[in-house]
């Protein structure tokens, strides 16, 4: 079993309020913000790791490969996945600004051709652009079955199919895909028992959330390989289909008012807010 996970680095989503728009609205400025792994991609790494272990130790022969597109510094973020337990990394170098969802999907298709994984797992979207396209375009390009927004994944004992739970209005839809396949994951995939592989004991419960890297793995991650090559070496057309025409910040919220007492509040609700 070989799983490919795609990873994007994004400006610290916990400090999204510090994002600025460049004068003229030409671009978003994220200077000074810590580059972090897109949280949904981190969930994808966690999903992959849960599929290739028995709750405690790795299943022999299974591998998890992490691929990323971006500047050389993105190697740091790949290294974090290796510290969580992934086996090797691939970094295809380019500027953050020279990428769009379409290009990443077509480039990933080339990586898939070379790596021949049984399963590709991605975050459902990156928290910066919120485009939510790569998994879909990739599956279409490869002609593979896909399931988006996975909240549970069950790998069959014979490792020939995965059954993916997707949250929909009023319930959960389950899709069974024949491998190889593409899955994009949603927040609930890192719940204690969301990922099962018919190897890990049914009673085993993970900690909620992506795992913290164990110290021995952090130390070991240094010796795991990260292969680095220019994006162009994949032989894809690096032209962009998505063009950003302008950015603006949301309008600032108006200040609230203080009311004297309940009677005043009711009066204001009636006259100013016209809510009553």
């Amino acid at each position: 079993m070989k799983i490919l996970v795609s990873l994007k680095r994004t400006a610290d989503p916990d400090n999204a309020n510090k994002v600025k728009v460049a004068p003229g609205g030409a671009k978003i400025v994220t200077d000074g913000l810590e580059p972090k792994v897109n949280p949904f991609d981190e969930y994808a790494v966690e999903t992959a790791l849960r599929l290739v272990e028995n709750g405690k130790t790795r299943i022999a022969g299974d591998t998890v490969v992490v691929a990323s597109f971006g500047p050389k510094e993105a190697a740091t973020n790949i290294r974090q996945s290796l510290a969580m337990g992934a086996d090797s990394g691939l970094l295809f170098t380019t500027d953050d600004d020279s990428l769009d969802g379409d290009l990443v999907a077509r480039a990933l298709a080339k990586v898939v051709e070379a790596q021949k994984p049984d399963l590709v797992i991605l975050g459902k979207q990156a928290v910066d652009g919120d485009s939510n396209q790569v998994a879909q375009v990739l599956a279409e390009t490869l002609g593979w079955p896909s399931a988006t927004f996975a909240m549970s994944v069950n790998l069959s004992a014979d490792k020939k199919t995965v059954t993916v739970g997707r949250e929909v209005d009023g319930g959960v839809v389950k899709l069974t895909l024949t491998l190889p396949a593409v899955i994009s994951v949603d927040l609930r995939i890192v719940g204690a028992k969301a990922v099962t592989n018919n190897v890990t004991p049914a009673a085993f419960a993970y900690n909620d959330g992506p795992r913290f890297a164990p110290l021995p793995m952090i130390i070991k991650a240094k010796t795991k390989p990260i292969a680095e090559a220019p994006l162009a070496s994949l032989g894809v057309d690096t032209g962009l289909k998505v063009r950003y025409t302008g950015f603006e910040l949301p309008a600032a919220r108006k200040a609230g008012i203080k009311v004297k007492d309940v009677a005043d509040l009711v009066e204001r609700l009636r006259t100013d807010a016209k809510a009553l």
């Binding site: 810590e34 792994v37 974090q80 913290f212 890297a213 164990p214 110290l215 130390i219 240094k222």
Partner: peptide, 30 residues
């Protein structure tokens, strides 16, 4: 690198049983 080498020595000397290190500021806060 020096930090990681130091951490490795803790395990070799049996000073620590298990552990983790924050990979980013969110993990540090957690």
């Amino acid at each position: 690198d020096a930090l990681e080498a130091w951490l490795a020595s803790l395990f070799e000397e049996g000073l620590v049983v298990d552990g983790t290190m924050s990979q980013d500021s969110s993990q540090a806060a957690a």
